[in-house]
Write a protein that binds this DNA or RNA. Structure first.
Lengths: 343, 343
DNA sequence: TGCGCCTTTTGGATCAATCTAACTAGCATC
DNA sequence: GATGCTAGTTAGATTGATCCAAAAGGCGCA
């Protein structure tokens, strides 16, 4: 079984010979052109079946048509957030007859360079990009200059222009903060990564908006990595503050999980003494104890939206740039001291 | 910026004209052939730089060389387990100059068919496949017959042969069961999906081995979906049993999380009254309360191993099939009643 | 000067599709 | 009988990199 000869792949010519027509006719039939008469069409179909013909997209691409491939560039795939976005992208692309190349940058611009270059070598029709921290505007401009459609997702390189989709970070965070304020919280801390990407900056801005509107002092900034460990690190920082905050707003769910565990270990009563919130609403958020109050950003929907924008751009490269802001829903759970239960 | 003309891409001929040499020479230079003299080499390099030349892999592919692409087919990307495996695959491929097409089957053979067909149309050099439930041997055989190297990962289609890599499910589960038995557990239940894939079957077999060896009765089988909800459903089933089990072995971590939450809600004391265990050791397992005893299967390592096997197979299609079983490490935590703490 | 030998370079064919323009029937119309 | 028109089909050029056989150039040696 394993040592059988790998047979030469059948080509258009083989099918043509079998059917007794020309290559051109076969090509037309395979692409469902109305130019071919029904009997011929049937003969060609049968011949293709007989010789086990398989379309060779590579050869087709050479004549200048589309590759029907798209590059999906994220910072990391193992991260429930991007994993879910990738799932949305994959599903939407599949439906459109496209398939995605997967690349991870681990937030390193040089790795991102390599990935983008490789994708261009493969002549992808477009790219969905969650830009790595420190990405220069020039990078994005290069893609545009080479005529490669690119949609930025989740984050955006400031001043880069072009299509973009992300959750309503600022408005969502405002809503979350207003809820906490209404529940009596007054002294806020915000946990975000040392170098913030645009999404985190927007969340922080939303929090500041709400506090300012209620004439409350701005949040204390805790600059720890956006990971579980980074969240845990905030416990020490909080304890060291002159005035204990009564609300810790984390820039993502995973940080919140780390923070809650560390805070409880240090004797804080999370939910009453201090409210802790996240962003994302990953599956773990609902079952975590205490269940996590968070902002549902719908990564899957964002992935689907990114595909919509990209396919539109591929179809019409001249269309004006579009920004698609997806609603972010406040999900209130026990970690901020109760309120109605929610899935 | 957005309405600048997308300039015609530079080709080998353009570079050749710039450098005053032939296409063939340029091709040799780009592929680092030792045949070209140093001065010429430098001249060509400079010319390529000047005209902004970008390698066109598609054209090269036509001459029969490799595409340097690989298909990664999993059941779902949003699933911490596969996400981490995908991360391992991506990293290993990147290092080898390859890039992966991503496809998700959602465990549906027809979707898998579509994906495999599309990958073959794109002439991938090989495929890493976590076969969907119900995949027929014929599917795998078709790939082999067409000379497409394929490595099965995590699961295997029974009787399909070929390369394969997965965690040591059976041995690992034996170790886990022995630990529980040594801790005094006697009445076991096993929660697995209704239709079990090979990995789950192996885990069940390992559990049965250990129980048989200690002359204990075989485990009660709970056939609920392999999800959080499926895990939660086991609580009702357990309560309905004539004799309450004192150990619930779940076929994956996510089920265990669902089970623990539901059992505690129903008044069971998890860890003392009943031990609950998972498989996978996803990040959530360490921070869950109670922390989850589980089998660390190292999905990232499995992804890397799959790439190793695949690249080997691509390089030497005639080599004998290889099965690579990755060690599964027992991680004891609070959910089985303590023992030493572990990360 | 001619010959062999080695290094370096090259033209042309090749891969498998698509595109263009032209060609063939068949039939009606003037 | 020439012309126009339509529907169906096709030969040949095209795409960009690679492979092959052969050519060009340089050098030493008889």
């Amino acid at each position: 079984m394993s040592n059988s000869v790998p047979p030469r792949r059948a080509t258009l010519s083989d099918v043509a010979a079998q059917a007794g027509v020309s290559r051109a006719t076969v090509s037309l039939v395979l692409r469902d052109s109305p130019l071919v008469a029904e009997p011929t069409r049937a003969r060609v179909r049968a011949a293709a079946e007989r010789v086990g013909y398989l379309y060779n997209r590579g050869a087709a691409t050479m004549r200048g048509t589309r590759t029907k491939t798209v590059g999906l560039v994220v910072t990391e795939i193992d991260n429930p957030f991007f994993a879910e976005m990738a799932a949305g992208v994959e599903a939407a692309l599949d439906q459109a007859g496209y398939i995605a190349f997967l690349a991870a940058t681990r937030d390193a611009p040089d790795r991102q360079d390599r990935a983008l270059r490789r994708l261009r070598e493969h002549r992808v029709d477009g790219i969905i990009l969650c830009p790595a921290l420190g990405t220069q505007v020039a990078e994005i401009a290069t893609l545009a200059a080479h005529g490669v459609p690119c949609v930025q997702a989740m984050r955006r390189v400031p001043g880069s222009g072009g299509d973009f989709t992300a959750p309503a970070n600022r408005a969502g965070m405002q809503a979350l903060a207003l809820h906490l304020i209404a529940a009596g919280r007054r002294r806020f801390a915000f946990a975000g990564a040392g170098v913030m990407h645009s999404g985190v900056r927007e969340r922080l801005a939303g929090l500041r908006d709400a506090l300012r509107r209620h004439r409350l002092p701005p949040p204390t900034l805790l600059r720890t990595p956006g990971t579980r460990a980074g969240g845990a690190a905030t416990a020490r920082l909080l304890a060291a503050l002159p005035e204990r905050p009564d609300a810790l707003v984390c820039s993502n769910d995973v940080m919140a999980f780390g923070a809650i565990a560390a805070l409880e270990q240090a004797g804080w009563r999370v939910g009453s003494e201090v409210a802790v919130t996240g962003v994302g609403d990953v599956p773990e958020a609902a079952t975590y104890r205490p269940a996590l109050t968070t902002l549902r950003t719908g990564p899957r929907q964002i992935g689907e939206a990114a595909v919509r924008l990209l396919l539109r751009r591929i179809a019409d490269p001249g269309a004006p740039a579009e920004r698609l802001v997806m609603p972010a829903e406040l999900v209130v759970r026990a970690s901020c001291g109760g309120g109605r239960r929610s899935a």
